[in-house]
């Protein structure tokens, strides 16, 4: 049985359709995350990092949930832990925004930024990279109780 299994594994590894199956899985993962985490995905795409980030997420996260709401939230937490501080702030912000829109964030969540949040949002949503973002200390307060769900504060 062992010999049979390893011969099947060799056949499978050499099958050109294995690459097709892997591509299908990659498409679905990227497509679902792109739709759920629209803003963060937009920034990562502008930065040319989206596909790598999705692959990295699935490779390093055990038992990614099937539900896009759960998988999407886990993806945003994953991006929030990465070294890029702007993408991390945006991912935290988007996770809070999603919760606020569902009415699940009554108390509010504060997110720190080292560049102007509006400029980052504009980049992510327009899919056009800004020459540079204005540096500074900013905070966003995200809450279900705020009209439009968030407010930006400049902390200087």
């Amino acid at each position: 049985m062992q010999a049979d299994s390893s011969s099947y594994e060799r056949e499978l590894a050499q099958s050109p359709s294995l690459a097709v199956v892997r591509d299908i899985a990659r498409w679905w993962r990227a497509y679902q995350l792109e739709r759920y985490c629209l803003i963060t995905s937009g920034l990562l795409q502008v930065q040319g990092d989206f596909e790598a980030a999705v692959a990295d997420f699935y490779e390093t996260t055990q038992n990614v949930p099937a539900w896009i709401e759960d998988a999407g939230d886990a993806f945003l937490r994953f991006i929030a832990r990465r070294p890029d501080p702007v993408a991390a702030s945006l991912a935290e912000f988007e996770a809070a925004l999603i919760a606020a829109r569902k009415g699940e964030l009554m108390s509010g969540r504060v997110i720190d930024w080292n560049v102007h949040p509006y400029e980052v949002l504009r980049t992510a949503l327009s899919q056009k990279m800004a020459n540079e973002w204005t540096p500074g200390r900013f905070q966003t307060l995200v809450s279900s109780n705020i009209d439009g769900y968030f407010t930006v504060f400049e902390m200087n």
Binding site: W28, N63, A66
Partner: peptide, 13 residues
């Protein structure tokens, strides 16, 4: 099947 060992394959085999 779409899951192996709890992991979602994001495709069906």
């Amino acid at each position: 099947y779409v899951k192996v060992g709890g992991d979602n394959l994001n495709t069906m085999l």
